[in-house]
Write a protein that binds this DNA or RNA. Structure first.
Lengths: 99, 99
DNA sequence: AAGGTATATCGACTTTTTCCGATATCCCTA
DNA sequence: TAGGGATATCGGAAAAAGTCGATATACCTT
């Protein structure tokens, strides 16, 4: 686990918000037409909620993904992102003992 | 607890190293002449070990302090910094449940 | 095959962070 | 109270991150 990359990914207000939204997609986003929330939430929905441009949000999601905090699944023309809970658990342990 | 500020403070290689060194000062620094390690480690020792300028290290320490990760004690002309373990514990809990 | 929609990538500009040298402040001792 | 040592603060140059609009790519539908 590359802690530094994770902390950098978490050092941005919008990215922290995205992670929170993804914690409870049903509460945070309107119903998705093309897939249930099990696969995650598509970029477009996240973008609308974040209020930044499509390119910025896409970039943010790949920063979160490179840090291992989310993972993505492509389904048709949509890419769905969801949280990677194992990374959060690992991170919490690292903070308890390795930092 | 201001998570964003904490994550920013942790987003730097040298600052992470400093926190690690402060975890076991006796193993990381030469014996201090003017005080035992209970009060912390003085800026000069940290600076030597970090290999950056005095001003940079002083600045880094205050970033860590503003984030609540370390605290300082002035004794004579020395300022001793030590870890604030409660913040690390809190942070680990926040990651488990609030992020 | 063509057009449309969703996402990713690129290039540019702005803002923030990194890190330095110089200087100021604080405190000790002669 | 003057000089010296330790730390803090200031101002700036360079590098990185934030953010955008434009364009490319991928895929779906007709």
């Amino acid at each position: 686990m590359k802690q530094l990359e994770i902390f950098k990914a978490l050092s941005n207000k919008t990215r922290l918000e995205i992670l929170l939204w993804l914690k409870d997609p049903a509460a945070s986003f309107p119903e998705q037409v093309h897939a249930g929330f099990e696969v995650g939430v598509c970029v477009g929905e996240i973008q609308k909620k974040a209020g930044l441009t499509q390119s910025t949000v896409s970039e943010y999601l790949s920063i979160l993904q490179r840090a291992g905090l989310v993972s993505s699944t492509r389904v048709g023309q949509w890419t769905y992102y969801k949280r990677n809970e194992e990374t959060f658990i690992e991170l919490s342990k690292i903070i308890e003992s390795d930092i």
